[in-house]
Amino acid sequence: MAFGEQPAYLRVASDLRQKIVDGVLPPHTRLPSQARIRSEYGVSDTVALEARKVLMAEGLVEGRSGSGTYVRERPVPRRIARSGYLPAAGASPFRQEQADESAHGTWESHSEQEDATPEVATRLRIAAGDRVMRTRYVFRDGGEPIMLSTSWEPLAVTGRTPVMLPEEGPLGGCGVVERMAAIDVVVDNVHEEVGARPGLAEELLALGGVPGHVVMVLERTYYASGRPVETADVVVPADRFRIAYHLAVK
């Protein structure tokens, strides 16, 4: 193969991908069979199979048991806002979005105490094994799961206070900033990093994805005078959503 020349399976995948994008192969259409790909492109069974695997890994097609491989519906990505909000009664950005009359968002959560893993301990600057409150969330829009979140708060900060449980008590459901302020902890900084990776099986099951789909992972940590008081992982399906930032210029 000459320098810069694509392998045969990538050339086949590229042509089929273009047909999907152009609508020649619209959603729910069965992808040409392996035998047909082999015949049309003059390639081996191995090349045809690898080309189909590429399209499946990209989320363009999906296999249906006993039926074949079909072009997937490609949703128009929607935005999930992460900033540009003025705190309204301490609400989180997601809850503020749901104040719109056209919004149909719901969420559920579950909190429990656990020992901090080494990774969580590093992010919270505590010792591995120190107690933390872990809260898991599933956010939905119109019944469709759109986002998962898992947060950890050190019980050395919130333990035996009215805000120990993020979704219960007098400030249940309020944002981290307001909850911490209620116990005289002033949050003055937040750090976020966004990355991407293949979704874990349990994440894709909860989000309605299929194995191999990519998710965006937003790692967020709130600080009070340099001390981490909450860290969280927010998981979003990459094919259906975009994380949007609006930053003020100072």
Rank of each mutant, 00 (worst) to 15 (best):
T122W: 01
T122V: 04
T122P: 01
L124Q: 04
R125H: 12
R125A: 11
A127S: 14
A127N: 14
A128D: 04
A128G: 00
G129D: 09
G129Y: 02
G129T: 12
G129F: 01
G129H: 08
D130E: 15
V132G: 07
M133V: 15
R134Y: 02
R136W: 06
Y137L: 14
F139A: 08
R140T: 15
R140I: 13
D141T: 11
D141E: 14
D141S: 12
D141V: 10
G142E: 07
E144D: 10
E144W: 04
E144N: 08
E144S: 10
E144I: 15
I146P: 07
M147V: 09
M147N: 03
M147F: 01
S149Q: 11
S149M: 13
T150L: 12
T150G: 12
S151P: 06
S151M: 09
W152P: 12
W152I: 12
W152A: 07
W152K: 12
E153I: 09
E153S: 13
E153G: 10
P154A: 00
P154I: 00
L155E: 09
L155C: 04
A156T: 15
V157M: 08
T158M: 05
G159N: 05
G159L: 02
R160F: 14
T161H: 01
T161Y: 01
P162T: 09
P162Y: 05
V163M: 14
V163H: 00
M164D: 12
L165F: 05
L165K: 06
P166M: 07
P166A: 08
P166F: 00
P166L: 09
P166C: 07
E167I: 12
E167L: 10
E168F: 05
G169I: 13
G169R: 04
L171Y: 05
L171S: 06
G172W: 00
G172K: 02
G172N: 07
G173L: 04
G173H: 01
C174V: 11
C174W: 02
V176K: 07
V176P: 14
V176M: 09
V177E: 09
V177K: 10
V177C: 02
E178T: 14
E178A: 10
M180A: 04
A181K: 13
A181V: 09
A181P: 06
A182F: 07
A182W: 03
D184S: 15
D184P: 08
V185S: 06
V185C: 06
V186I: 10
V186L: 09
V187Q: 04
V187S: 00
D188P: 11
D188W: 06
D188I: 08
N189A: 12
N189P: 02
V190E: 14
H191G: 03
E192W: 05
G195H: 07
A196E: 15
G199H: 05
G199T: 03
G199Q: 10
G199Y: 02
G199V: 06
L200M: 12
L200V: 03
L200Y: 07
